[in-house]
Design a protein around this nucleic acid. Structure first.
Lengths: 233, 233
DNA sequence: CTAAAAATATGCTTTATAGCACAAAATAGC
DNA sequence: GCTATTTTGTGCTATAAAGCATATTTTTAG
C-alpha cells in the first residue's frame, strides 16, 4: 500500500468520541501525545508478550486478536472494528499483551501515550469508571464465550461466530452479506475447530439454505434458523 | 448451622484492606452502608440473572461461581476465597449477574451498598483505576482459560485445575494436601469434562504417583510432573 | 441404627471431531 | 501470462471424550 495522507486531527476527533466528557484541557493533553500510522493487511500491530506503551485505537480497518494455543492452533479472542480500542486490557492490567493483534485489512491505528492517559485517568474518576464498565462488560463476554466454545457442538459454535460477525461488522448494502471477509482458517480459529470442519460445516449450512457462499463472501439467508442452530448448541 | 456472632467491625476492617488509600471520610461512608451475613454450605448467594444491589465480599469460607451450560452441564468460571469480592463484574458493567454464586462451605459475606460505593468511586479515581486493574487482570485469566479449556486434553485440563486450586487455596499444614475439598462433579465442572472422566483421570494421576487420593482429600506428590502434564496439554 | 439418596468408581459403547491425504481452485509472485 | 504457493473442498480413518449401565461406597435423613 502506498503511503497515504492521514488527517490526524479528524482521526483524533473520532478517537475522542470514545471518551465521554473530556475537558478541553484533557483533550489538549491527549492530542499532544497522540500519533497515527498505517498498517497494511496482514501486518502485526503487536505481539503477545510485548509491553504496551500506550492505548491503541483502531481508527480504520479491521483487526483480529489471537492467542497461540497448545497445539499450534490459534484461538481468535477478539475481532476489532473501528473506531475502537485494542490492547487496553494489558495496559490497564499493567501486563504484557496476552494476545497478538494483526490487521485483517489495510488499517489506520493511533496511539495515545501511556503516561499522558494514566495522568488524565488519575484525575478523572468518571472516565475511569466508564472504562471500568467497558472492561467489565468485556469480561462478561469472555466468560460466556468460554462456556459456548467448550459446550456447544461444531454447528452451534460456527453459527454463533457468524452471528457474532454480523453483530460486530454488520451487512453490506444488500442487508445480507457479512461486511467481513475471513479465510476459512480464521473462521475456524474464531470458532474453535479445525479448518476442514469450518469448511465442511459452512457447506452444510449452505446446503440447508441458511447461508449462501461465494468465496469469502457469506450471505445470511435465514437468521432465525441460524440463531436456532446457535442456541441449540 | 446455628446463628453465630459476627464481629462486623473486624470483618469491615478486613474488607477495607482490599481498598488501598481510603480516606477516613470514605471509610465512614462505607461503614454506614455495610452489612454482614452468614451463608451455609450449599446456599446460593445470588443467581445468574439477579440484579446486584451492592458489592459483595466473601469474608470467610469458599464459594464457586458457575454458569449453566447448554446441555445442563455447569461450568465453574471462578473460585472465590476470602477476603475477596464476588459479583463485581455485573455491578461495574451495570448488568445482571452472569453466573450463580454458591457457598462451598459455611461462609460470611458482606455487602457494601451500590450507591455508596459508586459515590465513593466517582470521587476517587485512584481507587477506580485500582479496580480497573483487577478486572483487566481477571479478563486476562478468562481469555487464557478459554484457550486452555478448549485446546488442552482432559489430562492437561485437570492438571491445570489442580494447579489452579493449589495456587488459589494453598496447602494444609502438611504442605501437600490441597486446602479445598471439591466433589468430583465440581472438579469436572471446573475442568470442562464429565464427572466420570474427572474420576477416571484423577485415578490415573494417583496410579502414576502424581497425586494421592483420600476421598475429597487431594495430596499433590509431584508438582513438577503435574505442571508438565498441564503444559503438554 | 437403618433406609434412602447421593457420590464415587469402573467397564463398555457410541459419537463428535481431529487428523490426514489428496485434488481443485484461487491467489500471489516473477 | 505462467508457475509457485496458498486456500478451499472432500473423503476416509483414527481417537478423545461423552454417554450409559451398573456396582460400590459414602453421606444424609428419619
Amino acid at each position: 500500500m502506498a503511503k497515504q495522507h492521514i488527517d490526524q486531527d479528524s482521526v483524533f476527533e473520532g478517537v475522542c468520541n470514545l471518551f465521554p466528557n473530556l475537558s478541553d484541557e484533557e483533550k489538549a493533553k491527549m492530542r499532544a501525545s497522540f500519533s497515527c500510522m498505517f498498517v497494511r493487511k496482514g501486518e502485526i500491530i503487536y505481539k503477545a508478550g510485548d509491553t504496551p506503551n500506550g492505548l491503541i485505537c483502531l481508527s480504520k480497518g479491521k483487526a483480529k486478536l489471537f492467542k497461540e494455543g497448545v497445539g499450534g492452533r490459534d484461538q481468535i479472542v477478539r475481532m476489532a472494528k473501528p473506531v475502537g480500542f485494542i490492547g487496553y486490557r494489558a495496559l490497564f492490567a499493567q501486563e504484557t499483551y496476552s494476545a497478538t493483534a494483526q490487521a485483517l485489512e489495510d488499517s489506520v491505528i493511533c496511539i495515545i501515550d501511556k503516561d499522558a492517559l494514566i495522568d488524565i485517568l488519575r484525575n478523572n474518576a468518571e472516565l475511569s469508571l466508564h472504562i471500568l464498565k467497558s472492561v467489565a462488560t468485556e469480561l462478561g463476554f469472555s466468560t460466556n464465550r468460554t462456556v459456548t466454545l467448550t459446550q456447544k457442538h461444531i454447528r452451534g459454535r460456527l453459527a454463533e461466530s457468524l452471528i457474532f460477525l454480523r453483530d460486530t461488522y454488520g451487512y453490506e448494502d444488500d442487508s445480507q452479506t457479512l461486511k467481513v471477509y475471513l479465510s476459512r482458517e480464521d473462521l475456524a480459529n474464531l470458532s474453535n475447530m479445525t479448518t476442514s470442519n469450518a469448511i465442511r460445516t459452512l457447506s452444510v449450512f449452505a446446503d440447508e439454505g441458511v447461508i449462501e457462499l461465494d468465496g469469502r463472501r457469506i450471505k445470511i439467508l435465514d437468521n432465525t434458523r441460524l440463531e436456532r442452530i446457535s442456541d441449540l448448541g
